[in-house]
């Protein structure tokens, strides 16, 4: 019990903005109810529904879960890890950009050296 509360408290610091933590708070209640009534099975189903909902969301035609599902392996470079800036020279695939390659130099310091 102590471990769980400690974990929850620490995990709450992960959320970057206040709005997001409000969202999470609201989402927690149904999950608590589900966990209370159905235990592990309830949690599984609750998360499944949440996942389905998130995957159904699209903002301006771009899937909400974009680089992960639908999986765009090339876009993962800016998701979990951030590669060096000169590697980040393509636009995300999910927004269907007309030009997929960023043409300008992304390494700004190159200009400064001149």
């Amino acid at each position: 019990m102590v471990v769980i509360i400690a974990l929850t408290a620490i995990a709450s610091f992960v959320v970057p903005s206040n709005e997001m933590s409000n969202t999470l708070r609201i989402l927690t209640f149904p999950l608590i109810l589900l966990a209370g009534t159905f235990g592990f099975v309830g949690i599984a189903i609750g998360f499944l529904v949440l996942l389905i909902h998130l995957s159904r969301l699209e903002s301006l035609g771009a899937p909400y879960f974009a680089p992960v599902s639908p999986l765009f392996v090339k876009d993962l470079k800016d998701t979990f890890l951030r590669l060096p800036i000169y590697k980040l020279n393509t636009r995300p695939k999910d927004v269907n950009a007309q030009k997929s390659v960023i043409v300008e130099r992304s390494r700004e310091w190159d200009d400064n050296e001149k």
């Binding site: 389905i52 995957s55 992960v68 599902s69």
Partner: peptide
């Protein structure tokens, strides 16, 4: 809820799962 969504959404969820 899952299967009433579009087939691409289903595909997305399956990929994730």
């Amino acid at each position: 809820y899952l299967s009433s969504s579009h087939i691409t959404v289903i595909g997305r969820i399956y990929t994730f799962l």
